[in-house]
């Protein structure tokens, strides 16, 4: 069990009413521990029976575990509580595609594009349909695309990885963990900037003991995350992150 799962498990056990059950279930899902993930979400939904995000996550868990019927049920339930829920709508479009109903998948994604025209994940999925490639609910870029330099990652506003990956010193992949922690960072940064009179937010950074992290929003619903060790000075990291964000913006636009 990874440290973050252990910590989250302890936190949820200490406070069963905490919404951290969503984070815990998501971590378990990314570790392919589908049965415990499902248990965690279902227990959480007993306390929060109208939480659309919980049902959407349950759908993801079922889908990853191969139970597409249960995934559809969960996503429909999410939409019952929040008719505009992005992830649930994406998931159902994916299931349509998997079932061979390309027309229904396209209709679902096009409706999403109408509601969320800036969403990179939806654009990518539609592009995949057009190219008869494999759009998935978790849209990823093939490694060969080499969109981003090492130590740089692009995620959408649901915390889904779009391109690149991050590794810790020693090689462990921390992409999902970092994406999960920073999924709300763009919204919080935008809110803080707005309420404190800072205008539109441009970037943010952390300088830490062994390196630095820099985040830039190439579009309102994507986040570029760059991580370097301490050999890269903070100013240089900022420049590299800004450069990667510009490239990401161009790449995202080229997909749509």
């Amino acid at each position: 069990m990874t440290d973050d799962i252990r910590q989250l498990t302890a936190a949820v056990a200490a406070d069963p009413s905490s919404l951290l059950f969503l984070d815990l279930a998501e971590r378990l899902r990314t570790q392919r521990l589908y049965r415990p993930a499902r248990t965690v979400v279902e227990r959480g939904l007993e306390r929060y029976p109208t939480l659309a995000a919980g049902f959407a996550l349950l759908g993801r868990v079922h889908c990853d575990a191969g139970d597409h019927a249960a995934a559809a049920d969960a996503w429909h339930e999410a939409l019952r509580h929040d008719a505009s829920h992005l992830e649930a709508r994406k998931g159902l479009a994916y299931l349509d595609w998997r079932a061979g109903d390309i027309a229904a998948a396209r209709a679902g994604l096009e409706a999403l594009m109408h509601d969320r025209p800036g969403d990179a994940g939806v654009r990518l999925a539609l592009a995949g349909l057009d190219a008869q490639s494999v759009p998935t609910a978790d849209v990823t870029i093939h490694e060969d695309d080499a969109v981003l330099a090492e130590g740089t990652m692009l995620v959408d506003d649901a915390g889904m990885r779009l391109a690149g990956r991050l590794q810790r010193h020693g090689g462990a992949d921390v992409s999902e963990a970092v994406a999960a922690e920073l999924v709300g960072a763009s919204r919080e940064a935008a809110r803080a900037a707005r309420l404190l009179g800072l205008g539109a937010w441009r970037d943010a950074a952390v300088e830490a003991a062994t390196g630095g992290l820099h985040v830039v929003p190439p579009t309102p619903d994507a986040l570029l995350i760059a991580v370097r060790d301490r050999r890269t000075p903070p100013g240089r990291l900022a420049m590299e992150a800004e450069h990667a964000a510009r490239e990401s913006r161009v790449w995202l636009e080229s997909q749509g």
Binding site: L182, A185, R191, A193, D203, A204, A208, L213
Partner: peptide, 30 residues
């Protein structure tokens, strides 16, 4: 709130204790 969110991201990346965090906007910085 925003600083702790960013620090959790750097913790997840294994960067060790944070010593400084900043957020830049068009009209200023935090």
């Amino acid at each position: 709130a925003v600083m702790m969110r960013l620090v959790r991201g750097s913790d997840a990346a294994g960067l060790g204790p944070a010593r400084l965090v900043y957020l830049r906007g068009d009209d200023g910085l935090l």
